[in-house]
Amino acid sequence: MSHAATETKGARGPAAAVAGAAGAVPPTGVKRFREARVAWIFLAPFMIAFLLFLVWPILHGFYLSFTDQSLTGAGGGFVGGANYAEAFGDATMWRSLANTVLFTLMSTVPLVAIALVMALLVDTGLPGQWLWRLSFFMPYLLASTVISQIWVWIFNPSVGAANELLRAVGLEPIAWLQNESTNLTAIVIATVWWTIGFNFLLYLAALQNIPGHQYEAAELDGAGKLRQVWSITLPQLGPTTVVVLILQILASLKLFDQAYQMMGGISSDTTRSIIQYIYEAGFVGYRFGYSAAISYVFFAAIIIVGILQAVLLRQRKAEK
């Protein structure tokens, strides 16, 4: 996994290339001992928090997944792989996983493609730069609660703006969030609006790192603006797109906040994400052991995605 991280970072331009050139000075003897002591003092606060709030919960959660621990304090006995066996035979677990994957597929494509279009348009240098940035990035600054309330209002089946618009153009209104065939789509729409600003900024930053002289050269050769975008800009955005895609897929797989809140906390078979199921099993059903087991199934899925991405990245690199 660490490889995937390093490699994507490596694609970040000159700043990254400088990194790593300067390392620690290799001291010897007493000096080295003293430096190690200073190092441990510098490291201690972070490492203590790291061990306490990350390493320990990971290990303890793994242990809990083999017990029948309850939130009420009851249970706690070792049950072997029973929780995992139950999870793999649990239709609701599979359904939640399928919802999460479906949401990821539905949201990732528009979140990357539209963000790219936005960034390309803003990078043309058209007047009104601050307004474009504000429009596209502002929703990202809103809390999940706020965007959920706004979209629940817009998707209100009787008086919401979405249906008023549909009626205005002569279409039938839709019970967006109440209908099981449309509620995930409604959540995808709200999510695209909410989080696109992040991808937009990543693309914008990448675009501004493309040296201007390349465009000058192309212009001298008589290449039009569209031609320049096609042959200079887009090819150079390849590495950025890989990073944006990876971050987006990982973010989409962690769906919970907006889906849970837009549905008003209701557990619908078509919108329940895997994290919502973890939450429900643990804090509604009080089954900590079972909930921990599902957490690990999800964690394993994330790792598999991560390994796949690392392999793909390596292949890309090898091709170059």
Binding site: M1, S2, A5, T6, F50, L52, F53, L54, V55, W56, P57, I58, H60, G61, L64, Q69, L250, L253, K254, F256, I275, I278, Y279, G282, F283, F288, S291, A292, S295, Y296, F298, F299, I302, I303, G306
Partner: peptide, 21 residues
């Protein structure tokens, strides 16, 4: 390397043990 690898851990999978803690 351990710290780098831990970046992939989604904080959401820790809610049960963290709450317990």
């Amino acid at each position: 390397v351990v710290i780098l690898a831990s970046i992939v851990i989604p904080p959401q999978v820790l809610i049960i043990p963290l709450f317990y803690q």
